[in-house]
Nucleic acid binder design. Structure first.
Lengths: 148, 148
DNA sequence: ATATTAAAAGACCTTTTGGTCTTTTAATAA
DNA sequence: TTATTAAAAGACCAAAAGGTCTTTTAATAT
C-alpha cells in the first residue's frame, strides 16, 4: 500500500511514542531492530522526520528520538503526505485515464467511496492512537513475527 | 494506485477492445497515441500481454492487436495480478508491521473492508465492461484531456 | 578538558521501474 | 518473389527507490 520509506517512518514513529510512554528515549539502533528495518536507512528516515518537524532528537550520550508532547496528535495522513505527496488521494484512482472534471469513467465513480474510506482511516488514526493500541496489547506486533 | 506498466496495460487493453467492437485491429503506434503512453514502452507491454495470453496479435501488413472473442471477459484483477503480483491484495494493507494471523493491529481490522471493496471492484469490472462504458459515451475519455 | 556516545550530513552503491532504440521475424499485397 | 508493413525480441539507458557507509557535529558524564 505504501512505499518502504513510509512504512518504516510510520513504524518508527509508533515505536518511539510507545517507548516514550514508558519514559524512554530510543536510539537508531534500537528502533531499527524493533521495527525490523535496515539500521542506516532507518537513521536517514528518522532524520528526515526530525527535519520535517514530526519528531525531536538529541545527540550525544543519553540521546535519541522523542516527541514534543505539547503538540497535537499526529495523523498518519500527515506523515504519508509529507513523504509520498498527494498522489494517493487524488485522480481517478486507477489511472485508467485522466478523467476530466466533468467526464468521469465508471471506475472513477466506483472508486470514489473507497478513496473516501482510506482518507478517513489515515485521518482518524494517529501515531499516538496506534501506540496506545499496541501498548494495551502485544508490543511484539511491531516486529516481524511470521514468515508471511 | 497502480504502477505505470499496469496503467498502460489496462488502458491499452480497453482501447483494443473498443476498436475491435468497431471491427478494427489497432497497432502499437495508434494504441500508444490514443492511450497517451510512450510508443516503445507500449509495444513492450502489449507483447508481454500477448505472451501471457490476455491478448492476440498478428505481424505484417494489416497486423495489430485483438482479442479472442470466444474467451470469457477479462477481469481487471487478472491483469493487475499478472503484472504486479499478489501484494496489493494481502497483508496488513499498511505494512505498519507484519501482523501474524491471530494478532491483528487495529489498522489491519479497519483496512479489511476497504481491501474487500477494492477486490470486488477489480473482480467485477472487466476490460470488456469498461470498453462498453466508454463506447456508450466519449471515446476521448481514454486520452489525457486536461492538464490535471 | 576530554573521552565517549549518539545523531546529522552526505557520499555512494544496488535494485527496480520506466523508457528508448535497433534488429529480426512474420505476414501480405503488389 | 519481393517490397512493404508491423509485431517480436532484446540490448540498452535513465530515473527513482531502497539501502550502505564514513565523516562530522553535538551532547554529556567523568
Amino acid at each position: 500500500m505504501f512505499n518502504k520509506e513510509t512504512e518504516y517512518a510510520l513504524r518508527g514513529l509508533v515505536y518511539v511514542h510507545l517507548q516514550q510512554i514508558k519514559g524512554l528515549k530510543p536510539g537508531i539502533l534500537e528502533i531499527a531492530k524493533e521495527i525490523d528495518a535496515p539500521v542506516f536507512y532507518t537513521g536517514k528516515i528518522l532524520q528526515r522526520l526530525v527535519k520535517m518537524g514530526f519528531l525531536q532528537s538529541t545527540k550525544g550520550k543519553g540521546g535519541g528520538f522523542y516527541f514534543d508532547l505539547t503538540k497535537a496528535d499526529l495523523p498518519l495522513k500527515s506523515v504519508i503526505q509529507a513523504i509520498e505527496g498527494e498522489k494517493a488521494y487524488s485522480g481517478c484512482g486507477f489511472g485508467l485515464k485522466s478523467c476530466s472534471d466533468d467526464q468521469h469513467c465508471s471506475l472513477h465513480e466506483q472508486y470514489a467511496p473507497i478513496r473516501e474510506s482510506i482518507n478517513k482511516l489515515v485521518s482518524q488514526n494517529t501515531v499516538q492512537s496506534l501506540a496506545r493500541d499496541f501498548n494495551g496489547g502485544d508490543t511484539i506486533l511491531l516486529r516481524r513475527v511470521t514468515s508471511q
